[in-house]
Design a protein around this nucleic acid. Structure first.
Lengths: 201, 201
DNA sequence: TTTAATCCTTATCTTTTGTTAACGTTTTCA
DNA sequence: TGAAAACGTTAACAAAAGATAAGGATTAAA
């Protein structure tokens, strides 16, 4: 997987937010860097300011907290998605969680400092501000849905919805991570699965 | 409370995102409108596209869903905050929830169509894109915290945190709304309060 | 001011979840 | 390849939450 392939995939992935002119793209690509995470390698660690936002070319990561010595997985990201510890990245404060590769993961990176340069670059500023706005709006919509699920649905309902809308996640992510993601314990998810399986007959 | 007072309060409230030059402000203020919601009046109703984003000069609102004929309150907004059904507003899709005034509420409004005009206005575009980005980033951070609370904390812990960080909300909002906000039933919140009260001795 | 509606608490009972531990299977890696 | 770690299920018990209903207090409205 060569660099040009990654750059092209990145450009395609950004198309749902903004499309860059050739001249703009030439500037932007100068600020990109690349990284490969091995399985279990960390992209973000607790206590450190997150300095990058990344686009996932290939692979998957999980966000997790450590509470009472236990890991609690709060979110997943897969290929063609952006990933960062947003609050840490945006506000320049230490991250409260880890982000770790679930598989070998290919990333295109934009450093915070470089993003600021682009936001101040006369030929790029407007497009980059729009890009940032649209990305943030996109995640607001995702988070709004996820928050609504916690407020209005039971764990079992959240599981059922996930099983319908993103079945493939169960083939790709250990079930006890998914349990945390749904706001419950692995044991409880196992019971819910048994319950709902019987109902399917 | 006259219009000029509201405009000034609005400007002050936006200062944490961007500060507008006089020339910019003159243009922007031409796109503002104003509204007063009586208690229980709706700012957004389910099924309709939300056409406004609003700044709360005075008052309070709640977001709620209707599920099985029951209202479930998911979020509150108070003075000096922005309020909208973001997903509906941004994506131009029907809102899945209601937003209703908890008290008489004074709003400064920006219509979606006018916001687009400003985003395309040569003298305003850059500043407005930035404004939009920073607002969206701000809410991402809020939502991230709230999501983490649902994943990593028990209902009792969420209550305890709220009681420590926003005690005043209990003086202002009916407790059964707060219960929903915490992801539990009013009966359960009442029990948690009793439990934690005893522990305080 | 009287009536109705809203709200919080409490009690009872049911259901669900959390906790801990055991077991067998699969995966990892030394 | 062989030992260790990771994973999912199940069981048993405790703790918490949901559902329903009743009672009393406060608030709103006719």
């Amino acid at each position: 997987m060569d660099k040009q392939f990654k750059i092209n995939a990145f450009r395609t992935g950004l198309a749902k937010f903004v499309t860059f002119e050739e001249s703009e793209w030439e500037i932007l690509t100068q600020y990109l860097s690349f990284s490969t995470l091995k399985k279990k390698e960390h992209f973000v660690v607790e206590g450190k300011v997150c300095d990058y936002i990344a686009f996932i070319i290939q692979g998957a990561v999980r966000h997790y907290h450590v509470k009472d010595g236990q890991e609690i997985t709060g979110y997943f990201c897969f290929e063609n998605e952006l990933v960062s510890a947003y609050k840490s990245f945006v506000k320049r404060v230490p991250s409260t969680n880890f982000i770790q590769a679930l598989e070998e993961t290919q990333l295109v990176l934009i450093a915070y400092a470089d993003l600021q340069k682009m936001l101040n670059h006369p030929l790029l500023a407007l497009k980059m501000e729009r890009f940032g706005r649209l990305v943030a709006e996109y995640y607001i919509c995702c988070f709004e849905d996820r928050l609504n699920a916690f407020v209005t649905q039971s764990p079992e309902e959240r599981y059922t919805v996930l099983e319908k809308t993103a079945k493939d996640i169960f083939q790709r992510v250990p079930q006890h991570y998914i349990a945390n993601f749904l706001g419950i314990t692995p044991v409880s998810l196992s019971r819910i699965r048994k319950r709902t399986l019987i109902l399917k007959d």
